[in-house]
Design a protein around this nucleic acid. Structure first.
Length: 200
DNA sequence: CCATTGATCGTCT
DNA sequence: GACGATCAATGGT
């Protein structure tokens, strides 16, 4: 897909699928995206961080498409979204997994726990670790060629190679099949159905 | 392969 | 004060 701001401002589920196969890259490391999840915005998606309206954390989601929304997860990890959809709607696409296609040595150094190269960016926090992403990346314009973190288009995936299913780890709206991945890619994270904690 | 568990802290109620 | 858009280590099948 062509990565113009206009295109990224389109419907979040279309944008999500279009991002498969694209690159997310720094000057040192590039990752080819194999798995993403769509999150609709304000009032549309109880699983979205933005669904109750803007807060200091989610402010960037309410801005223009094409910017990075980075959040801190479970007290330890960073995860990266691309803001999509019309401005003010706060839709976003979580980048869940990919294949490191440049900067393997540095990615391995940043991911010492990875047992093989396909594990380097298999999972949203692993992808961020491989790229060296932290809070300083939040708000970055991903389609500005001078940014330290950028999206780059690539050849669209062959028809029929995209699958979809429920999102990972969410307890609200768990039935919506808004996770998309490229069939047969070893870097796609293993699916885990979300589990709501049992009442006492 | 699968299931379970501990780590660890920002965010929002 | 409870809860995560997670991961790695561990132990069983």
């Amino acid at each position: 897909m062509r990565l113009t701001r206009t295109l990224l401002s389109g419907p979040v589920l279309e944008v999500a699928q279009g991002l498969l196969g694209c690159l997310i890259e720094t000057d040192e490391v590039a990752v080819r995206l194999t798995e993403v999840e769509g999150y609709a915005g304000l009032g549309l998606d109880p699983a979205s961080h933005a669904h109750r309206g803007p807060t200091p954390r989610t402010r960037v989601m309410f801005g223009p498409a094409g910017h990075a929304y980075v959040y801190f997860s479970y007290g330890m990890h960073w995860c990266l979204n691309v803001v999509t959809g019309p401005e003010g709607q706060a839709a976003a696409v979580l980048l869940r997994a990919g294949e490191v296609v440049r900067g393997l040595e540095l990615a391995r150094h940043r991911r010492p726990a990875a047992r093989s190269d396909v594990d380097l960016a298999r999972g949203p926090a692993r992808l961020c670790a491989a790229l060296g992403i932290d809070a300083t990346s939040s708000g970055v314009d991903l389609i500005d060629s001078t940014s330290p973190l950028r999206l780059a288009a690539s050849a669209p995936p062959r028809a029929g190679l995209v699958s979809s299913g429920p999102r990972v780890g969410v307890t609200e709206a768990a039935d919506r099949p808004w996770r998309f991945w490229l069939d047969g890619e070893p870097s796609v994270s293993r699916y885990r159905a979300s589990v709501r904690r049992a009442p006492e």
